[in-house]
Write a protein that binds this DNA or RNA. Structure first.
Ligand code: SF4
Ligand code: SF4
Lengths: 144, 144
DNA sequence: CTTATTTAAGATAATTTTGTCCGAATAGCA
DNA sequence: TGCTATTCGGACAAAATTATCTTAAATAAG
């Protein structure tokens, strides 16, 4: 459904949010180990998210990544996905056709558009806060 | 959403079905040109579909691909997708986690499972006949 | 100011997906 | 039989994605 990069992005953001709620800044190393992802690859993804104003990075000793507490609820999964995978999900059609004539859609159009818009809505309505706090019970799931 | 191979597979099957309804057997060349796909790559995909009993291939002069008229309605998109992409869509979770504890699902589980099962249902309920005949008006869409 | 620590950035490598090429096998036809 | 059109099947190549390595830049602390 999403690219590997995007999955890491979501998991990492979730972990950072969880720690930021307790005022902990976390290092790249810690994040990668916590979500079981390749360190350097994760670095690029976090960098991208930082450039997209989704999280903040701090260099130097005691540096790392964090998210402003008050923003955790306004950051939606859709923002993360868009920053990493772009808007491919929203645009292309299921069959990968280049463009589409809305006046004479193929027989699948209605159905696909419905499902895709459900997904979109879900991503837009689900905040990082929701995901992070929703799993405080079984935190280990981020490792899988 | 689907792999490129899968997209070609759906488009090709649709075209073959459309022609088979009129008792025309179509060649690889014709198919590839009709759906705008790389010839050799398309060959592999069609071959795979043939091995999965989704379509029939005939070698030699006047050979090509076809689908038994009476089967066109019982072949569902799900069959094609499964033959090419396997069952990845149905198994993995949105976050790409290896396994999942249904007893203590992450906060996204309900939502994702719902959307995914909608997609699954749609693929299982949509037959090649439906797709092929549904677009007889604007056939050129397969080129895009 | 120096050093240790940590992210930034770019080059490089491995893997997967997508795409190409070519000889072999098959079938129709003269 | 021999010729030709076509799929089959495997080896090969290119492109995209994922992952690693190396060096630079920033910054906190002594
Ligand atoms: S009309 Fe059909 S081909 Fe076009 S965007 Fe919709 S589903 Fe895709
Ligand atoms: S519980 Fe969460 S992590 Fe597990 S399969 Fe469901 S969505 Fe994925």
């Amino acid at each position: 459904m999403f690219s590997k990069a995007c999955e890491y992005g979501i998991k990492a953001s979730t972990y950072i949010a969880l720690q930021s709620l307790e005022m902990n800044r976390v290092s790249l190393k810690e994040i990668a180990s916590e979500i079981n992802s390749p360190i350097a690859f994760t670095a690029k993804i976090l960098h991208k998210l930082a450039k997209n104003d989704i999280l903040e990075s701090v260099k130097g000793p005691y540096g790392g990544f964090q998210i402003k507490k008050e923003r955790i609820d306004s950051i939606k999964l859709a923002h993360i996905v868009a920053a990493i995978d772009g808007d491919d999900i929203y645009n292309g059609c299921a069959l990968g056709l280049d463009e589409c004539n809305a006046l004479q859609p193929c027989p699948l159009h209605e159905k696909f558009v419905g499902i895709r818009s459900d997904l979109k809505k879900m991503l837009e309505n689900t905040s990082l806060y929701e995901v992070a706090t929703g799993l405080e019970v079984g935190l280990t799931f981020l490792k899988r």
